[in-house]
Structure formats: C-alpha cells, structure tokens
Design a protein around this nucleic acid. Structure first.
Lengths: 155, 155
DNA sequence: GCTTGACCTGGAGTCAACTCCAGAAGCTAT
DNA sequence: ATAGCTTCTGGAGTTGACTCCAGGTCAAGC
C-alpha cells in the first residue's frame, strides 16, 4: 500500500544524486535494492530509478545502523519496524529492544576507546623517555595496589 | 628474541584460557598472530602458545577498536602507537588523531540511532491506528514546518 | 603405556558486503 | 541526430575477517 496520497509533487532524485548525497556508490544503492533493503523505488519511463525523500531517509538510517555493525539483514528488520512500528511483529520489537541495548553498551565501549586514544595523544607529546601514565592504559581497569612493573619490550 | 628480564613469574595462559577470557576463538587468536597483530607470543617447550597479561590487554584493545569498525590493519598501527607512543611515527600519530575524531563522530551518530530506536520502542506501544510522532523520525533533525534536506558531507 | 582432549601448522573454504565488468539503452546539449 | 555522459541488467570478482579441515603433537588421567 505505497500509494501515499499527495506526493506527486515530491522531488525525485537520480541514483547519481543520491550517491552524492549519501556517499554510497550507485552500485551499492542498486545492491541494497536487489537484496530488498530498499523497496519500491519507482522508475521513470526510461526505466531509471527515481528516489524520493523517504528513500534518502531510509538510507541515512541504514548507514547509521551500519556504524553499529548491524548486518544488512538486521537493518532490514529494523526498517520494517521503522516503517510501521505498531504492526511490527513481536520478534522484531524484541530484536529492536535488543539492538538498543547493544547501542548503549557500544557507546560505553567507545567511551573507553576515546579515553585510550585521547590519553595516547595528549600525554607523552614530546616526552623523550618514559611515559608512566601509559602503563595505566595496559589495564584499563586496574586493581589498586597492584602495580606490576613494565617489562621493556625488545622491539 | 625478547629477553624480558623479570617477568618469569608472570602468569601464562593457554590459547584456550585466552579464548575463554576474550570470547575470541582459538582460530582467531592464531589468525591475529599470523597477520602480525599479536607479536612475540612465546611458546612452551612443546611449542604451545603461552599468553601473558599484556597479550590479554592488547586483545581487549583490539576488540574495542573493532567495534569502531577499524580494520585490523589500522588496529595494528594503533597498537604500535600504544606500545610506544613517544616513538610512534608521525603518520601514525596523525592517524590516531584522525581515528579519535572518527570515534567522536560515531558516538554522535550512535546517539541519533539510540534516539530513533528509543522512540520506536517507547511510542506507539499498543497504539492501534496512526502514530504521528513516527513521521518525525523520517528526518531525525526536522524544523517544524520546514522540511528541507540538509546536504550531508558523505562519510 | 594408552587414551583423550587441547593444541599445532598450513592451507582451503566461507560469508557479508560490496565492486567491477560488458553490453545496451536513456538523456542532454549542440 | 550525433556525441558523450549516466544509468540499466546480470553476473562475476574482490576484500576483510574469519572458520574449518587434515593430519600430526603434546599432556594428564587411568
């Protein structure tokens, strides 16, 4: 039931436009359609794809979800949920809840990584010998009072 | 040969132990060594790998960085930086700075994704017909009454 | 000593997600 | 209406990151 009532005047974009806007390649866009991630992309009389705003919106969702390492299959399910949340099947809702949890724990992990990288960059800048703070990085969570001395690596 | 002086009493772990602790498979651990991500993993007399704490620490760094979609090659460079920050080559420092930026922008994107998923789950729960708030999701950042696309710099 | 299970090496196979053709056809400006 | 770019389809190839053998070795319990 994709006959949305009054979108006759909506702007349409060629595959090249969309590639430009999203940073995805035309090949990738065709691929997404082939595997069913993007559905009902209309064609003009010459058979060329004419994308609408909603496709763009979906694509942005897709790229965002990809950054979470969700598989395209999972993203497909999420898109279903997104298109029609109140009719989404229970397993898809559950999966979405699950994914939300994953996003949150990933954000936590990313926070740790950010800390590590920030330390690496901010400390030891210009220091020529020894950078004791770095030792702390070896074990992000270190029990207090248990400071092992660092064996110097040969390489 | 890494003649580490005083770590003779450090605990050593078998590949199975490490697999258990990290959640990686033994095959993956061997693979990481094969491609040079893990270096100088010592063997016992029988030729078996005996991992040390630092290997565990590296592996945790690796898995964290992988969640950021860094390639194993990139992670290898980051590990170099991590092992010896003050002697890291300038291009590796630059790369690290670069990666830090990526981490930050990814966290921002993840925040958006979290918002989307949260909305999907919290709204429309039980609603049977129509869920107007969902429309707002189509464009995550939408000025009311002015739904124009903002040009995004591609990844 | 024998069995059983963890581990070894080298190499082949798998999988997701693209990426790259070739050959044809659509659009646009001159 | 011709040139030159974009897009089309179908299918093959590539890449990164594993994953799975086969055929052998090592270690601990009985």
């Amino acid at each position: 039931m994709t006959d949305t009532h009054t979108d006759l005047d909506q702007p349409r974009y060629s595959i090249g436009d969309i590639a430009g806007k999203t940073g995805l390649s035309a090949d990738t866009l065709r691929y997404y359609e082939k595997i069913g991630l993007l559905v009902d992309v209309p064609r003009n009389t010459g058979g060329r794809r004419m994308y609408r705003e909603r496709d763009l919106s979906r694509l942005r969702f897709i790229t965002r979800a990809q950054k979470m390492n969700f598989t395209l299959a999972e993203i497909g399910a999420l898109l279903q949920m997104r298109e029609d949340p109140q009719h989404a099947r229970e397993d898809i809702r559950r999966m979405t809840r699950n994914k939300l949890q994953q996003v949150e724990s990933h954000m936590e992990e990313l926070g740790k990584l950010r800390t590590e990288l920030t330390l690496l960059l901010n400390l030891c800048r210009g220091a020529e010998d020894g950078c004791p703070i770095i030792e702390g990085l070896e074990e992000p969570v270190t029990a207090p009072g248990n400071r092992r001395d660092r064996p110097r690596t040969g390489r």
